[in-house]
């Protein structure tokens, strides 16, 4: 079973944040008390109550203004390093039908720092009170009921797509071909190893440092579990 996948065409994303809000609505997650920190990105980062966040990145390249938008979320890796890094066998499970990587309450027994650092995309976050670790679960409940994930349903521009993995891969390859005509640096990100396939119009690192898996361990020191997880991590050079 090849399961499900997302295809996220970032050339079409307008950062309307419909997906960010739809996620909170379906998951009944509370709003956070935020302030404006001089950026439109808010909440400023993922948290135990913010499972997807749209990241804003602005810069001038060769005199031209760019504003890159990244609706960030768990990539649902085919071989999930976080699952390999877990100490319990059933705190992080992978749905055999959809391929969704799903965390449950037993993650409270895991070492949150280890789980977070095992993720090449820096996604999992711990609830400081309950110690339960959270992230996107692909709206596995919706998907099993034949519905689209809430984020995909809310997207007005066709950025977010969801379906059988083969269909999404072929959609992604087709979209890449089209995008390349306009954006020579367009590329698919880690498409062989994840279930959330991003199409970027420029180098992935310009969107966010964690858009693409970084094979070189520069962010922090490896823990034992992480080293283990690294064996299954997608080995793709950081091109940003």
């Amino acid at each position: 079973m090849s399961g499900k996948s997302f295809f996220v065409d970032l050339t079409k994303c307008t950062a309307c944040r419909g997906c960010q809000v739809a996620c909170k609505q379906w998951k009944k997650l509370p709003g956070e008390k935020t302030v404006n920190t001089g950026s439109h990105q808010n909440p400023p980062d993922l948290s135990a109550t913010t499972l997807r966040v749209v990241r804003f990145s602005e810069m001038e390249l060769e005199g031209k203004m760019h504003w890159f938008f990244l609706p960030d979320q768990c990539r649902h890796c085919l071989d999930a390093p976080c699952k390999s890094g877990a100490s319990l066998p059933d705190s992080i499970i992978q749905d055999p039908d959809t391929g969704a990587v799903v965390y449950n309450e037993k993650t409270a027994k895991e070492d949150a720092a280890t789980i977070r650092s095992s993720c090449p995309y820096d996604i999992p976050r711990v609830n400081k009170k309950t110690k339960v670790i959270s992230k996107c679960d692909m709206c596995n409940d919706r998907v099993k009921a034949g519905k689209l994930p809430a984020c995909v349903q809310s997207c007005p521009t066709g950025t977010m797509n969801f379906g059988d993995r083969d269909a999404m891969l072929s959609l992604a390859k087709k979209a890449l071909e089209t995008a390349k005509k306009k954006y020579p640096d367009a590329q698919l990100v880690d498409e062989e190893s994840v279930r959330v396939i991003f199409l970027t119009q420029n180098k992935p690192g310009l969107y966010a440092k964690t858009l693409m898996a970084d094979a070189t361990p520069t962010r922090r020191t490896y823990t034992r579990q992480e080293a283990l997880a690294a064996l299954t991590r997608p080995l793709r050079a950081f091109l940003g």
Binding site: V21, K33, T34, N42
Partner: peptide, 13 residues
């Protein structure tokens, strides 16, 4: 008054 929208744009800028 809507927390999910207020957290995204919380203040006059």
């Amino acid at each position: 008054p809507q927390p999910w929208l207020l957290e995204a744009e919380p203040q006059m800028f």
